[in-house]
Design a protein around this nucleic acid. Structure first.
Length: 513
RNA sequence: GCCGCGUUGGUCAAGGGGUUAAGACGCCUCCCUUUCACGGAGGAAUCACGGGUUCGAAUCCCGUACGUGGUACCA
């Protein structure tokens, strides 16, 4: 049995967003399916953007989603350290080795010099000149300088980077698990920086070195990495690890209303883009209001729904099934059914998934979340059996968890505001006396249930010769406060005799006032 | 500009030489429901374009257009 080891390399610099979670999810499903390890590594090579607490946040997200990540990065493990900043020395070694072997070189160009180069070579045909084989000899690097000059610069600790020396006129190709054969012309790829002046590697060096060190067999990442794949391929080769190179899968992008889904799209278009809130993350906040864009969790999504909607965004198993549990996903998932084209994220459909899961989830599981939501508005439910019944009764009309506040709240608390406008235009003395009488008769009921309250209602309506419809709506408003909810008499049954009568009398004074 | 990757209704998508071109979301109509939903029955809406190949193309090939990603000492 082959052991699969997939990696997930979250960027800790922003929150964990849709695309990120989906990459992890596919990693996870693949690893689970083929009995492999699922390794999480923290890419913190950009120290200026790194936010403390990133690991914890990422693990919290993964756990919320129902993935069981190997928490080694938090406590150490077989491939420790998992933070790239702690592997700094090994990257430097590899970079130096590449220089020695003639596959890379030192570059001493300052920021200003690079800018000048880009300006000098910029033209209509070439709006963004690359640091490549055409111009590297015109720059200050160990390819263009003399031996003595280089020695001198190095001796003086001149800040420098190490760049890969892209070969000319070679064809680099590989087989992507999703897209098949892909090839690149090396002359068209620039001399990417491998090791930065601060001694940290760029992503390009780091992925290769880490994947090798962690014995990764399958590496999944977003499609935005495809253009730099040739650099990575060459690095595997130059470092002499070609045989150990993982299989690549470049996942299609998740698009927002305007191009690749960005972290700002959430605030812009009013839907979540992060799995969960991360107060420390500067990227999730709206620059104008300073408000944090809510995560899917905070917005009231069920993790089951979140995972589900992400899984079918860019993948399907060829059947008509759309609702999948994590177990089903693991069973049905296959890499060759992942799409090649990017998919636009549709918030309406996302909500539909949540609705489906609210309807589907067993009460026991849902109850905890509903309790949590209700407690945020000051409702602490002690009667579990009542809550169970309420959930069964109203779950169909809740799309997001917070909808339970409206739809379940009035079972536990007398509505504070009544939709008087719905009643008032047709309100009259006749109705007042009806409800007074009805309330009186309710008092006499011994065996309180929906059938009893309804039959009394019907008899009285017939006696008074009023259309039931004229009275059903007011009664509903009295009990729930608005024009929504399940059958009125069902509601009356659950809130109980005393409370029902109380609400009727209470409303009567408000309506007639 | 150059390079990469794409392109089936508004969105997610099935279909990979012969189909009335599935299904889902959303939208519309009706039924159910004396509320709001759920549910049920219908409806509008699609193979980017142009050339080939073929008896036959959404499907294979080539162009074009469009989209998207990359072109940073960001990932």
């Amino acid at each position: 049995m082959s052991k699969v080891r997939v990696r997930f390399a979250p960027s800790p610099t922003g929150g964990l967003h849709l695309g990120g979670v989906r990459t992890v999810l596919f990693n996870y499903l693949f690893a689970k399916k083929y009995g492999g390890d699922f390794i999480v590594r923290i890419e913190d090579t950009d120290q200026t953007r790194f936010v403390e607490g990133a690991e914890q946040y990422i693990f919290d997200c993964l756990k919320w989603c129902g993935m069981e990540p190997d928490e080694s990065p938090l406590h150490g493990g077989p491939y420790a350290p998992y933070r790239q900043s702690e592997r700094k020395e090994s990257y430097r070694q590899y970079a130096e080795q590449l220089v020695q072997d003639g596959f890379a070189y030192y570059a001493f160009d300052t920021k200003e010099e690079l800018e000048k180069m880009r300006e000098d070579f910029r033209s209509a045909e070439n709006p963004s000149p690359q640091y490549d084989h055409n111009i590297r000899h015109k720059m200050r690097n160990s390819l263009s300088l003399t031996e003595a000059e280089i020695k001198n610069l190095l001796a003086k600790d001149t800040p420098h980077v190490i760049r890969i020396k892209m070969p000319e006129g070679e064809q680099v190709s590989f087989t992507d698990m999703i897209r098949g054969e892909i090839s690149f012309e090396t002359s068209l790829v620039d001399d990417k920086v491998l090791l930065k002046a601060d001694g940290m590697p760029t992503y390009h060096l780091a992925v290769v070195a880490d994947d090798y060190a962690m014995k990764i067999t399958h590496a999944f990442r977003g499609e935005e990495w495809l253009p730099s794949a040739p650099v990575h391929l060459l690095l595997w080769k130059y470092l002499g690890w070609e045989k150990a190179m993982p299989q690549w899968a470049h996942l299609p992008l998740i698009m927002g209303p305007n191009g690749k889904l960005s972290k700002r799209d959430g605030a812009k278009y009013g839907f979540p883009v992060f799995a969960m809130n991360w107060p420390q993350a500067p990227v999730g906040t709206d620059p104008k209001t300073g408000e944090l864009t809510e995560g899917f969790k905070e917005k009231g999504f069920l993790p089951e729904a979140f995972i589900n909607l992400l899984a079918v965004l860019g993948w399907n198993d060829g059947t008509e099934q759309e609702i999948y549990s994590m177990e089903e996903l693991i069973e049905h998932f296959s890499m060759d059914r992942v799409h090649v084209a990017g998919a636009k994220f549709d918030y309406e459909k996302a909500k539909w998934f949540n609705h489906e899961w609210i309807k589907k989830l067993e009460v026991g599981n849902l109850k905890l979340k509903v309790k949590e939501i209700l407690s945020t508005v000051g409702l602490d439910i002690s009667d579990d059996s009542l809550l169970d019944k309420v959930i069964e009764l109203v779950r169909d009309r809740c799309t997001l968890l917070p909808d339970f506040v409206q739809h379940a709240g009035y079972f536990f608390k007398t509505p504070q505001e009544l939709d008087i406008e719905a009643v008032k235009p047709k309100w009259n003395e006749e109705k007042v006396s009806f409800f007074n009488e009805y309330a009186g008769q309710l008092e006499t009921i011994e065996n309180w249930n929906a059938v009893e309250t309804e039959s009394i209602f019907k008899i009285l309506v017939a006696e008074k010769n009023i259309k039931p419809g004229e009275l059903l709506l007011p009664l509903r408003i009295m009990l729930v406060g608005g024009k929504f909810g399940p059958a009125v008499f069902q509601i009356a049954e659950l809130i109980g005799k005393a409370e029902t009568i109380k609400r009727i009398k209470n409303a009567l004074t408000i309506f007639t006032a």
